[in-house]
Write a protein that binds this DNA or RNA. Structure first.
Lengths: 226, 226
DNA sequence: AGCTATCGTTAATAATTTGGTAACATTGAA
DNA sequence: TTCAATGTTACCAAATTATTAACGATAGCT
């Protein structure tokens, strides 16, 4: 419902990376908690029950792998997702990481957009237990990994904002998303754009997938409905 | 008068912010109480038992964190929700805040519409999920999420005011809502409309869902009854 | 790096829906 | 019966959304 209710615990010993990631996550409206080693990660996680924990692997005091193992063995944290930060070719770490129950990896060097889309994809698991990849609604199929939309087999490539917006609306067909919902989840809390911007994007999406799919609920927002 | 009215205690030492928030909250029909530091917050809270307490963190005499701790340790106030007002990057405060039992955060600078939607989301916790999801009364079903009304399977879309009004009446079937109740909950306190406006809306709703569902209680108001 | 196509945003304006009111009719309780 | 309260209708104003075009930003390419 609201991005700001999603808690992300960010753990890295390098202040620069921490600050960089924190900035990007907050820009999207997430509630960010910070830790600088595995021990802190475990402590904060137990108190705060974050939705997602982003763990660097190489850290002093307690490394990410060990922290992950502990977190995975803490029943109250069984709903937290864990993703590792890892330098590019650390294959051994990757194997060890999945072994202790990580849900995903983000490779350094980190590109903010890639990271955000990975994180969003991960967080969607929290809500929709249903079809994760290749979600089908009506004659549409949405592939979040490939950033593609199929309409009766025809392949459409929507620009990023349009895709994110359509993706949001289709994530819960029938549900009305208010303009605030849309702004905070597609644009992020910090970014301020005019109200007409949403309309224009809706218009462009309708142009591509057909007019009927997205319904206007005047005074409230939009919904995707078959 | 309106015993269902929601009380919000607003605490900040900056008169400008106080006034700004008070204006926006009252416009929505909330009953607003004001305090200018943590000590006042605790005093007023104990007397008034507000539904929601909005606390600034940095305040003279007693800060918000301490006030929150005291309120959370006061059994008679266990049903009050607490949300902090916080400047953007005050991470330490945020962690400390959740620690003492805050329910949410609102970040400065405050955008009225975002704030209202957060507050409404919070207040929904009070009533549980009751009024939120597909509530069924008689042959009617009201889906707030989809903004739809089903009548024997037939799907109706009501404009916003009609939907809100019907939604209010059905939230407590049998209860008579006075015209005042209706005005303050559907229109908000600031907005002044003529006497016939409610009637006209009732008329439009009756036209759609049938004449029998909403009963007039002459001299008092309206009630929804099966 | 420079060039080019695409994307995101806004402004301006049109189209649409919703909300509110006036004016008059009807109802029902004292 | 009487008359204040409510019902009804049609109409206008206000709010909201749709559409188009233009422009700067950005990303991808050579």
């Amino acid at each position: 419902m609201d991005n700001t209710q999603i808690k992300i615990l960010l753990v890295d010993d390098e202040p620069d990376i921490l600050e960089f990631l924190e900035y990007n996550l907050k820009k999207e409206g997430y509630h960010v908690l910070l830790g600088k080693n595995g021990l802190e990660a475990v402590d904060i996680a137990k108190k705060e029950h974050p939705d997602l924990i982003i763990l660097d692997i190489m850290m002093p005091v307690m490394d990410g792998i060990e922290a992950c193992r502990i977190i995975r063995n803490t029943p109250s944290l069984k709903n937290s997702l864990i993703t590792f930060l890892t330098a590019r070719n650390e294959d051994y770490s990757q194997i060890a990481g999945f072994d202790v129950g990580a849900d995903d990896y983000i490779s350094k060097p980190i590109k903010p957009r890639v990271m955000m889309s990975r994180i969003k994809a991960l967080l969607r698991r929290l809500n929709g237990t249903a079809a994760e990849q290749g979600l089908k609604i009506g004659n549409l199929e949405i592939d979040r990994e490939k950033y593609l939309v199929y309409k009766n087999g025809e392949t459409l490539t929507l620009p990023r904002k349009e895709f994110e917006l359509l993706s949001l609306l289709t994530s819960k067909p029938g549900k009305v998303f208010t303009r605030e919902d849309i702004l905070s989840r597609v644009w992020g809390n910090e970014i301020i754009v005019g109200d007409r911007t949403i309309d224009v994007h809706i218009r462009k999406i309708r142009e591509k997938i057909g007019d009927d799919a997205i319904k206007t609920v005047k005074g409230i927002g939009y919904k995707f409905d078959i």
